[in-house]
């Protein structure tokens, strides 16, 4: 009897904690839509912040633009080193000593707090190289932050490609780079793209690294490399922290979360497409 009660309580614990995850996500989304939804309009998306102090009226267009610039620059900087490192780990190094070390370094990089990346880029880019608080410094910081994400996801996508393709190409005398370019890469493309999207989403939501390297309370975000930019997550922080406008803060949070969930869902469907490709 006592045993049955314990079993029932345990079952309750498992179900409650399982369903809690779902409840949390739904609560966040519904609450943001409820509080922020009414304030989203074409004007909010397409206008610059206005009113006095700035941000109490108007919209968030420069912040959207700034975030897009930042993640684009981060991707441009990190994509080549990230992919090449992944290729080394999956195709060239495999289980060698160097690959083991690189794997460990990349893994440790993934664990580095993003504020530390910001601190490093602040000292190197903003101060020493004289970039100042700028789009360039922010893009560089975000690039360092997403580099391990790109490496790990692309490496795993490449490693998941059936080993037989490599063996057959090898036995036919096809060169390694040609095999990689024409056989392995296309078969891993969906998974790699999913990883890149995740990296973009990760960069778009990051606040701490751009707070010390790139973000301004107000800027035009024209895309000039050495100018500060506005960014959605930082704008949200400022709207709340400086008590500018709670309504705009909720609406900005909704736009940001909507953008990230969209990217996330796209990445998830690409990875399930990849799984289907791998099974064939």
């Amino acid at each position: 009897m006592k045993k049955a009660i314990t079993d029932l309580l345990l079952l309750g614990w498992f179900w409650v904690s399982g369903l809690l995850i779902l409840v949390i996500l739904l609560a966040i989304i519904i609450y943001l839509i409820w509080r922020g939804g009414p304030f989203i309009s074409s004007g909010f998306i397409l206008e610059s912040p206005g009113g006095f102090p700035l941000g109490t009226e108007g919209g968030i267009f420069p912040a959207i633009k700034g975030t897009l610039w930042l993640i684009l620059l981060a991707l441009v900087i990190s994509i080549v080193p990230g992919l090449l490192t992944a290729i080394y780990l999956s195709e060239y190094g495999r289980s060698g000593r160097l690959a083991e070390i690189i794997n460990l370094l990349v893994q440790s990089m993934a664990g580095i707090p993003s504020i530390i990346t910001g601190l490093f880029v602040y000292a190197l880019g903003v101060v020493t190289l004289g970039w100042g608080i700028s789009l360039l410094a922010g893009g560089f910081a975000l690039a360092i932050m997403v580099f391990p994400v790109i490496v790990v996801s692309s490496r795993d996508a490449l490693l998941a490609v059936d080993e037989n393709y490599r063996l057959v190409a090898n036995s036919l005398g096809v060169s390694k780079s040609y095999t990689l370019y024409r056989v392995i890469f296309p078969r891993a493309a969906a998974g790699i793209t999913a990883g890149l999207l995740l990296a973009l989403g990760y960069a778009a939501g990051a606040t701490a690294p751009i707070m010390v390297t790139a973000a301004a309370v107000i800027a035009s975000s024209s895309g000039a490399l050495l100018e500060p930019v506005m960014a959605l997550p930082y704008h949200l922080y400022i709207l709340f922290n400086e008590h500018l406008s709670m309504n705009h803060a909720y609406a900005t949070a909704l736009v940001l979360v909507g953008l990230l969930l969209f990217i996330n869902i796209l990445a998830l469907s690409l990875s399930s497409l990849q799984e289907r490709i791998n099974r064939h």
């Binding site: 939501g205 606040t207 996330n264 869902i265």
Partner: peptide, 20 residues
């Protein structure tokens, strides 16, 4: 996928909701 999406929500949003 829900777990994946929770990791996709940025920390500033969690912080904002927590504070608000």
């Amino acid at each position: 996928p829900v777990i994946n999406m929770l990791t996709g929500i940025p920390s500033v949003v969690y912080g904002f909701l927590g504070a608000a």
